[in-house]
Design a protein around this nucleic acid. Structure first.
Lengths: 347, 347
DNA sequence: TATAATAATACAAACGTTTGCAAAAGGCGA
DNA sequence: TCGCCTTTTGCAAACGTTTGTATTATTATA
């Protein structure tokens, strides 16, 4: 008789009504203390475990939030999830995770499934710049927070790292080390992550009076192999461009770039200086002390959670077009610098 | 009128019964083709989205499986989740993720919450060797699969890497490179991951007729700092022990050990050879070509999924005491070797 | 002791589905 | 036209809760 006992069953056994049992267990409403005690005893005796599915149906809230992202095995996303999960769990919410493997079709399919399950909110790292995959949620007024990439939708809530600041600090770091010709490897021409990181690089160069040499800008696709190829292209035209440093804007591409540099028989930082992006393992453990700009992932997750909790509490859901940009860090040997605090909220 | 339309609503609008609408939409049962068409039209028109919560209640199955693990930001776990998620999604199941931050109290608390939500199964990387936190599931006969650590419970289903084989191959690799005195850094004295990895190391030494020097066995706690400390302890007694190689049995500890070695002014592999464990980023991208044993995480996730699907289909749930041990890989420069296939199933 | 006020409990509807069974509609041969 | 079989549809219960309202039991007040 274990495991399938319900309010009804307990009520029958005790010869009282279901509603009394329910109220006795939920501490909420007034029930005679004596009754409550007895009900609690019985509940324990019969191994009663409340059925959250039924509760969800009745309350029309599942206390569940969905996270849809391109690749959970990227430490970047895993850490965001961790930060988010932590704050949500503290408030009784759990996380459903969907990994799209960077495919837009899966993305919309999963989001559709999640909507059917009536999750209370969606956190989305979209691979589709338009943000269109989120429409079921958007239309129904269910909260959505975009992370990483900023979608076209103007009214969407977004929380990301401040990519411009990140690139600025990386570039400035190299400038202050005396470099004048600095190459950059970007991950995307169309996504905001790429666009903004380029922008920061430009701004830093302008600010110090340097020209931007378009020949020094190469593109990959955030994956390792593309970093390798991009670096090779840069090295091929090194004679003309004469760059002495390179800034690579993603972890995997950084590894690829390092390989290309090594294969070319060059050393870091002897022949070429390098600043990487989000190099987590080398950062925690830095066997080779690569300077790297990092995103505060857990903090992003936490902020997303806090925003969501706020949205979920105050019933007036819907998008408010909040854009929050968290400050990146730079790891330079043993020094860790928080760059700046920009939590710009526009409404 | 968007977003909150139900079967009932559609039925009312069309002046037919709810059950007909339900059957028309679920393709299952016989409905006049004409009616079906009309119902589908209407469903589209009113933006009907089935409510899976209600469905779950009725079917008493949520098509959701829970994954509880100590740290999702560990690539090891993230990849298992990815592999698992992929196969489950293909069958309409979604994943609820819970990160215990390595705390046993959180673990049981989360599992309790998950049981209330009536997830269909539990995948658990426990931090509590007893496996006691899984009791709600175990008692109710809901499928549970343990990963990574093997719990005390004999009848539990477990899928892990073959740790003995992993250690054997790592040790043999060093032996075949001519090393005789090989140190080892383990992560745990009590968990099976630690015990088995030690066992493999022992077996490899015995097999080649070497003595096991207890002085060469050091323990950490799988974290980076402990690898650093353990390596320092080893280096301190290097005069007496005269080891020429070290095998470190976790990713983070390997990074720590590398740091200790470097701080001692030694080089790898010049002064000391090293085999690491699960070095993912260096493996994908291997800027420094560390030899490392790796676990086939996505394959583990996939196997877990397949086992679960089988359990969920054939109603006779419950634990069967299946133990599957997947074969590890060794990455040695550019060579990748699958070690062997041991899918031992004992019933 | 009757009556009003309050505390405790019970009733029943609702949340949105699925599904066994009964009822109705349609088709066909006699 | 009637009866019978088949196809299609409808009814109603069930899944396990919550919750507004009605009812009953208890106590205090006059």
């Amino acid at each position: 008789m274990k495991g399938n006992s319900t309010l009804k069953y307990i009520a029958q056994q005790m010869g009282i009504s279901v509603s009394t049992v329910s109220r006795a267990l939920n501490e909420k409403s007034v029930v005679k203390e004596e009754t409550r005690k007895k009900v609690q005893e019985m509940a324990k005796k019969y191994g009663y475990v409340p059925n959250e599915v039924a509760r969800s149906l009745q309350k029309s809230s599942t206390e569940t939030i969905a996270v849809v992202l391109p690749d959970i095995s990227e430490t970047f996303f895993a850490r965001i999830v961790k930060g988010l999960e932590n704050v949500m769990m503290q408030h009784g919410y759990m996380i459903i995770l969907a990994d799209t493997r960077e495919r837009a079709d899966k993305e919309s399919q999963y989001i559709e499934m999640l909507y059917r399950r009536r999750v209370d909110a969606l956190v989305l790292a979209t691979v589709d710049c338009s943000g269109a995959s989120a429409t079921p949620f958007l239309e129904s007024g269910t909260p959505v927070v975009f992370i990483d990439n900023i979608p076209d939708i103007v009214s969407a809530d977004v929380i990301t790292v401040d990519n411009i600041a990140a690139s600025k600090v990386a570039t400035k770091y190299l400038l202050s080390a005396g470099h004048r010709k600095i190459a950059v490897i970007l991950g995307s021409k169309t996504e905001t992550t790429g666009i903004e990181r380029l922008e920061g690089y430009r701004q830093a160069l302008y600010a110090s009076g340097e020209e931007v040499d378009e020949e020094l800008i190469e593109y990959g696709d955030y994956k390792m192999e593309s970093g390798y190829e991009a670096m090779k292209r840069l090295l091929e035209k090194r004679r003309e461009t004469a760059f002495s440093a390179v800034y690579v804007t993603s972890e995997k591409m950084t590894y690829g770039a390092i390989r290309a540099i090594r294969e070319a028989g060059l050393t870091i930082p002897g022949d070429l200086s390098l600043v990487g992006f989000d190099i987590h393992n080398l950062m925690d453990d830095r066997p080779q002390m690569i300077t790297t700009v990092c995103q505060p992932e857990e903090a992003i997750g936490k902020k997303v959670g806090e925003l969501l909790l706020d949205r979920l509490k105050n019933e007036e859901n819907g998008q408010k077009g909040i854009k929050m940009r968290l400050s990146p860090f730079i790891y330079e040997g043993d020094t860790v610098k928080r760059i700046h605090e920009t939590e710009s909220k526009y409404c």
